[in-house]
Design a protein around this nucleic acid. Structure first.
Lengths: 266, 266
DNA sequence: ACCGTTTGTCCGAAATATCGGACGTCGGTC
DNA sequence: GACCGACGTCCGATATTTCGGACAAACGGT
């Protein structure tokens, strides 16, 4: 995977920008380490992490030992790789339970995923990127690995069209980086097409996209709105593109009902 | 809450044991901070965390700022309290997805919780304590807060009777601290009673306990076994004690089927 | 069996992160 | 309006942690 190269470059830049000297605090090293594991999304050898984050090898070994002891990390497979440990799960669960909307969304997402049997998600914005917060795989396990916490350009997603629907054309142009309209396969999404999607979505109360980031996938999304009517999150299904129109209509109704229940102050 | 006093004492002891001097690495301070938040399980003021973990105030402010920037922590309520941030959720999800058994268990737990409408859990041992790894609240939201990652004495739980069922009486006496047979309300569980529960559980393939840690709660649990037949985890329901015997039988069958599907190598 | 590569540990030096304490603010109380 | 306690920031000194490099062991390809 060539992603490592990008991460490496970024880490090097960051290091340059923040600290002219190579020396850094342990805690900053640890943060870089965890972010790197999250980007790679796979057990990784300690020496590789050290290289890719620009951390001295001896320092990385020292830190990893400390973190393994605290169960923040786990040694995997006996082949010298490390990955996240159970403590992260405990702390993450505490976070989920502490945020009212997310706690409610968990119930909804689990419910509709089970009901319909397809993968359901709960998504928000993080800065100018789209983010999956909750992911409940459907029965068919259509997409295997979760993409929780991975930032994605807004135009690549159905939900993105809802999450910015309080902005006018100008605001959106300023808000979304121009490059984000470029799909992974090289196609470019026309801005007025995006705006049109957005307006239709607002009147219809849901949005559907097909073959956007993935040729065989359709996304259906409904908006969770705050009392002022602003879309603060979405709940959505990720389904095969050849799903019947009838089935999709059922899903849309399901999503609308769930989104309504999640919208605060109603 | 008097829990703070205990935590404080423990932190002080740990500090004494490890470092005669008050000085410590940032990473160790951070670990103590996160563990403290997990124990308290509530947004906490920075000064309180500093006091309870034995960390100098100025150091704690410095660290919290760093962690907030990394989204490991979040400032809450505008009243100067901090709690876990979204990054913990992302890393925790990566952990769940990386462990085969847990990934499968998530599907099962979600499925049976939805099917039956009651709270379902997936549990293991951590050292000589019982631990809830997954918790899916049922429709009635019987118990509100999750107890994920909280260690509980083995004898207090239904699952505990399964998780040690490969040991003989002597091994168990050595393994489980004597104090752990003392329930929160002061009653003591007789050892032979515990052993009897355990044997009955093994022949029946499930275990039921009522009013153990909580007067109005019944727990139903079934064992997940490795190819050697050893119980490596349990899947269970937490239900009101007045649930009809008929309904409980349905749940037991559900649990057994799920546990069987989760047992590796079949 | 040989040799180049990688892994994990250890050590001393010195750059620096932690610490203690002082300081200004803010809010509530008498 | 004066007092008190808590909050958050800032600063200089020094105890400590990071870092680089050396080393032995394990690995793996030829």
């Amino acid at each position: 995977m060539k992603g490592g190269g990008v991460a490496e470059k970024l880490a090097a830049e960051k290091q340059m920008a923040e600290k002219p000297t190579g020396r850094a605090r342990g805690i900053d090293r640890v943060i870089a380490l965890m972010e790197h594991l999250h980007d790679r999304r796979a057990p990784t050898r300690i020496a590789d992490i050290a290289r890719d984050t620009g951390t001295p090898r001896s320092t990385m070994y020292e830190l990893v030992n400390t973190l393994v002891e605290a169960r923040w990390l786990e040694l995997r497979d006996g082949d010298g790789t490390v990955y996240f440990g159970p403590a992260m799960h405990y702390y993450g669960s505490d976070y989920l339970d502490s945020v009212d909307l997310i706690r409610k969304a968990r119930v909804e997402v689990a419910h509709i995923a089970e009901l319909v049997g397809e993968t359901a998600q709960f998504c928000t914005l993080d800065g100018d990127k789209y983010l999956v917060v909750l992911n409940e795989p459907g029965r068919r396990m259509f997409r295997i690995s979760s993409e929780i916490g991975i930032k994605v350009p807004i135009p690549w997603t159905a939900s993105g069209r809802l999450l910015v629907d309080h902005m006018d054309a100008d605001e959106i142009r300023r808000f979304i980086p121009a490059d984000d309209f470029l799909l992974p396969d090289g196609r470019r999404i026309a801005e007025d097409e995006f705006l049109e999607d957005m307006h239709r979505a607002r009147t219809q109360g849901y949005v559907r996209t097909t073959a956007l980031v993935d040729r065989f996938t359709t996304c259906l999304a409904a908006p969770v709105r705050d009392p002022a009517g602003r879309c603060i999150a979405t709940i959505c299904f990720v389904v095969p593109a050849d799903t019947t129109e009838e089935a999709q209509q059922v899903m849309i109704d399901t999503l609308k009902a769930s989104a309504e229940r999640l919208s605060p102050g109603r």
